[in-house]
């Protein structure tokens, strides 16, 4: 019984102008320590909402989240969040951005030089040592995202929460960052929950893929185990039959069992192949 993180019968209602809107209903999920879990589902089904409840940024209407035996309902650095669009403070250098987090989390625990070394080490992990004194507007989108990840890693969180971390990046950069993330997770053994629209990304990175049903009152539809051996290599995998089998099962779930409710082409659909993902159509079908 290794129950590290427990999301138990979580439901949430939002108050909107046209009455209450039930976004989630009876979401149950347990995650083991060191596990990498992907959340996948159609746009607007409630993935970000689940993640934000775990982060404590949103409060569940029913049920709750238990981390290492304790209920969590406020945000905290033990559940670091990587935001879709980096969320670096634009008035601080790369170094200062990480420093703000490190100083806050380790105040009184690390000496000055230890703090410095720890910041440098985490920026090294994401291959950003060459630009530590640059301002965010001086570095590329992929680099910003790396710094965002470094900031979270530096907090040594119990769970790393990532909301479409690579969604706004081009295919090549995304592949680079996926490899970096795999490497880091391999070394550090972080527990990760990642939202993605990219089925290939989910299969490549995850131990389990959690597929959500369409909202309103979305819940967990199916869970796929990904038993591919690690370390994984994207080129080798693309030819492996197991990889393709898992991938196809995920696609079948999304396109046959959970057809996109509105069916409109303007909505974000899970990605078959890498295309530019900077889509902004949030909350596409909430009112429908």
């Amino acid at each position: 019984m290794n129950r590290f993180l427990d999301i138990s019968s979580v439901g949430i209602e939002f108050n909107t102008d046209s009455g209450t809107f039930r976004a989630l209903d009876k979401v149950n999920l347990s995650i083991k320590q060191g596990e990498f879990v992907s959340l996948i589902g159609h746009s607007g089904c409630g993935k970000s909402t689940v993640l934000n409840i775990v982060a404590g940024l949103l409060e569940a209407t029913e049920g709750g989240v238990i981390l290492e035996g304790k209920e969590v309902n406020t945000p905290g650095p033990d559940r670091a969040v990587v935001f879709q669009n980096h969320a670096l403070l634009p008035w601080m250098t790369v170094y200062q951005n990480v420093e703000l987090a490190v100083k806050q989390v380790f105040k009184g625990q690390k000496s000055k030089s230890e703090i410095h070394d720890w910041i440098a080490h985490n920026l090294e992990l994401v291959h950003m040592s060459h630009a530590i004194h640059k301002m965010p507007h001086e570095i590329s989108g992929g680099m910003k995202q790396r710094v965002g990840i470094a900031r979270c890693l530096a907090m040594q969180p119990k769970v790393l929460l990532m909301d479409e971390p690579f969604g706004a990046l081009d295919a090549l950069t995304r592949a680079h960052l996926q490899d970096s993330l795999m490497e880091i997770q391999n070394d550090l053994g972080n527990t990760v929950i990642m939202i993605t629209h990219d089925v290939d990304e989910a299969v490549l990175l995850s131990d389990r893929i959690v597929m959500m049903t369409n909202g309103p009152a979305a819940s967990i539809g199916e869970i796929l185990d990904v038993d591919l051996p690690r370390p994984r290599d994207r080129l080798a995998l693309s030819e492996s039959p197991e990889f393709n089998q898992i991938r196809n099962r995920a696609l079948r779930f999304l396109y046959e069992k959970q057809k996109f409710p509105g069916g409109g082409s303007r909505a974000k659909k899970p990605r078959l192949e890498a295309v530019d993902g900077a889509s902004e159509s949030k909350s596409a079908s909430a009112a429908a």
Binding site: A55, L57, P75, G76, P77, A80, V81, A87, L100, Q104
Partner: peptide, 9 residues
């Protein structure tokens, strides 16, 4: 940015 601040407490 506000959420970053909240996560960092």
């Amino acid at each position: 940015l506000i959420n970053v601040s909240r996560v960092l407490q």
